[in-house]
Amino acid sequence: MGRIAKEVSGQILCFIGFVGICVCCGIPMWRVTTYIGANIVTGQIVWDGLWMNCVMQSTGQMQCKIQDSIMRLTQDLQAARALIVIAIVISFIGMLLTFVGGQCSSCLKKESSMAKVLILGGILCIVAGVIGLIPVCWSSAYTISDFQSVLTIETQKRELGASIYIGWAASGSLLFGGIILCTSCPPSEDVYPNYPGMYPYQGPMYGPPGSYMPAKTYAPSAVYTGAYVPNKPYPPPTYSPVPGQYI
């Protein structure tokens, strides 16, 4: 898989996860309570959410009430409010960084800087996925334990709502998208960078077209006259009468 394909797939997964976290936070379907009396007319469905509660009658009428006080919520929903909002903010920042550092954008010029920004956005998406997964799992565990408790009245037993499943899917999308984006490694830098004190090579200088200027020459430190006079005189050799020998 090419680098651009990995980036696009990771960005799409992160965007889907961000939208899913927002939907999970907005819709009031964290818990669903179904009550059907002896007559179907008395049947109603109660939806519990982070911000409001809704009651749907069997006749099709729906009434919703905003949660005025956070202290009326259970502990898992109180923590879910804060954690889901934090996950939305972190995933939004991470998603923006993935678009800034992507190959398709022109915000950054260096490939190494683009890759580092992209990896940072992927890490933020992973963190947002983990933060969003905590309240969803906590609320589901609380709902299941309350449903299986013998102290809970049959007409008040709650079941898992659609927000729980949407939260699981959104957190998984953020996790997988962030992992894919983090695998985009930055390109290797030069082995021999330009350190201070190292002088670049300067080739021969050329003047106008058609003329050649040789490199600069330096004058010698001493002038050579052409005659060499030794410091110590040496006597000439004397030859003996025998040919090939000298004294």
Rank of each mutant, 00 (worst) to 15 (best):
G2N: 14
G2L: 05
I4M: 13
K6Q: 07
V8I: 11
V8C: 05
V19C: 09
C22A: 15
C25Y: 11
M29P: 01
W30Q: 03
I36S: 14
I40A: 11
I40S: 09
T42A: 08
G43D: 01
Q44M: 09
Q44C: 10
I45K: 08
V46K: 14
W47E: 15
D48P: 00
D48L: 06
W51K: 04
N53S: 12
N53L: 07
V55E: 03
V55Q: 02
Q57F: 06
M62T: 13
C64Y: 02
K65V: 15
K65P: 04
R72M: 14
L73K: 08
L73F: 06
T74A: 12
L77C: 10
A80M: 05
A82L: 08
I86E: 09
F92V: 01
G94Y: 04
L97N: 04
F99R: 02
G102N: 02
G102Q: 04
S113I: 04
M114K: 15
L120C: 14
L120N: 12
C125E: 11
A128E: 02
A128Q: 02
G129R: 00
V130C: 08
V130P: 01
V130G: 03
I131N: 03
T143Y: 04
S145K: 09
D146R: 11
S149T: 11
S149K: 05
T152D: 04
I153P: 13
I153F: 10
Q156W: 10
L160H: 08
G161S: 05
Y165H: 09
Y165D: 01
A169Q: 01
G172P: 08
L174Q: 03
L174E: 01
G177L: 00
P186W: 13
V191S: 10
M198R: 09
Y201E: 06
P204D: 05
G207C: 05
Y212T: 05
M213Y: 08
A215E: 05
P220F: 00
S221E: 10
V229K: 09
P230H: 14
P230L: 07
P233R: 00
Y234P: 06
T238G: 08
Y239V: 03
S240Q: 11
V242D: 10
Q245T: 07
I247M: 15
